[in-house]
Amino acid sequence: MTQFPRAGTVDWIGLRPARDVLVEIVDSAVAVTGAGLTGDRYTGGSGKRGITLIQAEHLPAIAALSGHATVDPAVLRRNLVVSGIPVIALKGRRFRVGTALLEGTSPCDPCSKMEETLGPGGYNAMRAMGGLCARVIEGGVVRLGDAVEWVDA
């Protein structure tokens, strides 16, 4: 339970400048200690939900369960799409994404807006696949293609 077969990879980065505003897709972002990503609306919050991650491998399942051919990560409003490592297994653990050190705090459950976004049943289509919330322990830069690696305690 303390091993990962390999490092993951950052496949997509999105910033949510404000509630109900389109997600800004970027190639890199600055993670701020105790906050979140610069330019994201959660940067000034408590820090527990500073950065949200979702599993790339779950996107086709969410699409299939919601009756869509594909799902654009921007509509799910997570900050990072990560492949190759099970993000929910990082809950309660510290991990590096690029030069930033994060700590998984809680599952990132879907919200009722997924009923509008994905259609009726969208909330349940995402259930258990909403990803992970993380706090920024040490700030740094996160870029497309960066490794996502668990840090041994």
Rank of each mutant, 00 (worst) to 15 (best):
V82C: 11
P73G: 04
L80S: 10
V71G: 03
V30F: 14
I62T: 09
I25A: 11
E103C: 12
G119E: 11
A29F: 04
G67I: 03
G104Q: 01
L118I: 10
D72T: 10
L80V: 12
D11C: 09
C108F: 01
L132D: 01
I54L: 14
F4E: 09
I62K: 06
L59N: 08
V136N: 05
D11H: 12
A31G: 09
I88L: 14
L53D: 05
I13N: 00
Y42I: 01
W150I: 12
H68D: 00
C111V: 04
A35Q: 11
K113V: 03
G45P: 00
R16C: 14
A29V: 15
T52R: 13
A63Y: 13
P5C: 07
L132V: 02
V75N: 00
D152I: 14
C108T: 09
K91S: 12
A125H: 15
A56E: 04
V97W: 06
V87N: 11
D20P: 04
P110Y: 10
E116I: 05
V142Q: 14
V151S: 06
L101N: 12
R16G: 07
L90P: 05
V32Q: 11
F4R: 08
A128S: 15
L90T: 06
G34M: 01
P120G: 08
G122Y: 06
V142Y: 03
T9R: 13
S106R: 02
R16Y: 01
R96H: 12
R41P: 05
R16I: 14
Q55V: 13
T38W: 14
T105D: 06
G131A: 15
T117Q: 13
G131I: 14
T33I: 13
T52F: 03
E103G: 01
G34E: 02
A29P: 13
G140Y: 05
S106I: 04
G140M: 10
M129E: 03
P86K: 06
L65Q: 04
I13L: 09
A89N: 03
P5Y: 13
V87Y: 10
